[in-house]
């Protein structure tokens, strides 16, 4: 029974975490490149330099003493996002949707005093949310004013698009849709749902919630499939460029669609999760193998994006 299940998963080309680590991240992601994606401040600088659009950085808190300057940094900002530079899985991100004097309204509706906000920043600085508990930095950045395209299938929060890029070729994508359970966060671990994407057209497919496949958003009840992601070709192009930017062969790119600014790169991930396979009802391995076979014939960015559109349409 168990071996049979494992065999069938293998036949479907489903990628497990051990194989992802041993054959993809360990092999294709040089260790010295990790800081580029682990530190969001560095990623942002790198992307901005290459002309890739990112949410505007309002300021960064790097040492405890700067927490005192917080009011100054935030003055005149009505809404913004506080983010640990080395956070994982969206932990510690605080979205402020509105502020007046020293009262801040968070995305989940809670009202924070200035002291509470400062405490949260201090926590982030001391590394509560960072990998390995190392001291961290805090980014204060533009709050994305998201494109209404996903409004019907989102419960608060900001939906984002995750694209897995292997050796510069986008191989799989999903739209992560916040739910009531995820508290407005676009993170599958926290209860968001993920909808697969037809790589050729940019249309959404059915979604994954936890381990199950769902066809409707649990909170809004609207069907998740069939929504066309705007600017799809340019999303593919941006994600493919991130490979050249970082030199990481196996990379997850998180993008958001801003109503006014178009696609923005939120963050990069050198160890992207595997739930994307459930969202797409397809294993990653056949696609990764196809890229490995054809990598020598894909010279330009255009080649790689075209190859992705041609080769990886929706499974069914």
């Amino acid at each position: 029974m168990m071996f049979d299940l494992a065999r069938r998963l293998r036949e479907q080309g489903v990628l497990g975490i051990n194989r992802r680590n041993a054959e993809y991240t360990l092999l294709h992601n040089p260790r010295n490149r990790y800081p580029l994606v682990d530190d969001k401040l560095l990623t942002k600088a790198l992307a901005a330099e290459a002309g890739i659009a990112v949410p505007e950085l309002y300021g960064a808190v790097e040492i405890q003493r700067q927490v005192r300057d917080l009011p100054q940094m935030l003055s005149g900002r009505r809404d913004f996002v506080l983010k640990p530079a080395r956070g994982t899985q969206g932990d510690g991100i605080l979205v402020i949707t509105n502020s007046a004097r020293d009262r801040y309204r968070a995305a989940d509706g809670a009202i924070l005093s200035h002291d509470e906000l400062a405490f949260h920043v201090a926590n982030m600085l001391s590394g509560v949310y960072s990998i390995g508990g190392h001291p961290d930095k805090v980014l204060i950045e533009y709050r994305v004013n998201f494109d209404p395209v996903f409004e019907a299938i989102t419960y608060r929060g900001v939906p984002d698009v995750r694209i897995i890029v292997f050796l510069g070729v986008p191989v799989m994508a999903m739209v992560r849709l916040p739910t009531r359970r995820s508290g407005g966060r676009a993170n599958l671990h926290q209860g968001a749902i993920g909808a697969g994407v037809n790589m050729a057209t940019g249309h959404t497919l059915s979604a994954v919630m936890g381990m199950a496949i769902v066809d409707e958003h649990p909170d809004t009840g609207n069907p998740v499939a069939g929504v066309e992601i705007p600017h799809w070709p340019s999303l593919l192009e941006i994600s493919a460029r991130c490979y050249d930017l970082t030199g990481l062969g196996y990379l997850g790119i998180d993008l958001v669609l801003d109503r006014n600014k178009g696609p923005l790169v939120l963050e990069l991930n050198a160890r992207p999760g595997l739930a994307i396979q459930i969202a797409n009802r397809a294993g990653l391995q056949p696609r990764l193998r196809a890229v490995e076979e054809k990598r020598d014939s894909l010279h330009t960015l255009g080649d790689r994006v075209a190859f992705a559109c041609q080769s990886f349409p929706a499974a069914s």
């Binding site: 168990m2 998963l9 293998r10 479907q12 497990g16 051990n18 381990m211 496949i213 739930a275």
Partner: peptide, 15 residues
Amino acid sequence: TGYRLVELRRFKVLA
């Protein structure tokens, strides 16, 4: 590089 046992459950819908 094989599957973890919990992954079998996790990816069951893909089988």
